[in-house]
């Protein structure tokens, strides 16, 4: 019994010393990050290439959630939660519902078909965009935080209600106006 325990201890200890030597923990962290990044890209491709527009919308939702998982994996809990709530919850439902409500016919081949020229144009434009983004990402001086952020919510709240209170309120008013406008549009013309 004790010998068996000794073997197990030895095996585990050896495996961990090996793992320490090759810096496996950080490898796993990077692995999780790239796993979700890859999944996000995969689903994003799905949005473009899937034939059924509802499938595209669902794929878009999966992309949102993968991005949220990316945030969570880099310890940005609050950002992750916001991403899930706003994009995964509200925006995704909005898109899916809008598609379902506005299209009546069979959805099997509902993604708009594109000609060769459109393909080429889209490729050029998105390639240029990708280049631009890559340039920005490489050139901008990112700083890593000196220590883990920890509880981000109070800090964000302080910033929003003190330093950035004006943009915050403006955004709120803008949303309110948009909402009133939507209600007016939904109600239709004057009924008087």
């Amino acid at each position: 019994m004790n010998e068996a325990l000794g073997y197990v201890h030895g095996l585990v200890g050896w495996a961990f010393s090996l793992a320490e030597a090759y810096d496996v923990p950080s490898l796993i962290g990077a692995g999780v990050f790239f796993l979700f990044a890859g999944l996000a890209l995969l689903f994003a491709c799905g949005v473009v290439f899937l034939r059924n527009v509802v499938h595209s919308a669902l794929s878009l939702t999966a992309t949102f959630i993968c991005v949220a998982c990316l945030y969570l994996s880099i310890d940005a809990d609050f950002m992750g939660a916001v991403q899930i709530l706003v994009y995964g919850g509200a925006v995704a439902v909005l898109i899916v519902m809008a598609i379902m409500l506005t299209r009546r016919d069979d959805m099997a081949h509902s993604n708009p078909s594109r000609g060769l020229w459109q393909h080429a144009g889209a490729a050029v434009v998105s390639g240029l965009f990708l280049l631009g983004m890559a340039a920005v990402a490489v050139l901008s001086p990112f700083q890593s935080a000196p220590q883990p952020l920890g509880d981000a919510a109070p800090g964000l709240a302080d910033l929003m209600l003190s330093h950035y209170v004006l943009p915050f309120e403006v955004a709120a008013v803008l949303l309110l106006i948009a909402m009133i406008g939507a209600i007016l549009l939904a109600k239709g013309a004057e009924e008087s």
């Binding site: 939660a81 709530l85 995964g88 981000a152």
Partner: peptide, 17 residues
């Protein structure tokens, strides 16, 4: 987690889709 309620609400809102 420190944003427990918020994350919980966010995840439970996924049940709609």
């Amino acid at each position: 987690v420190n944003v427990g309620i918020f994350l919980m609400l966010a995840i439970s809102s996924q049940a709609v889709l």
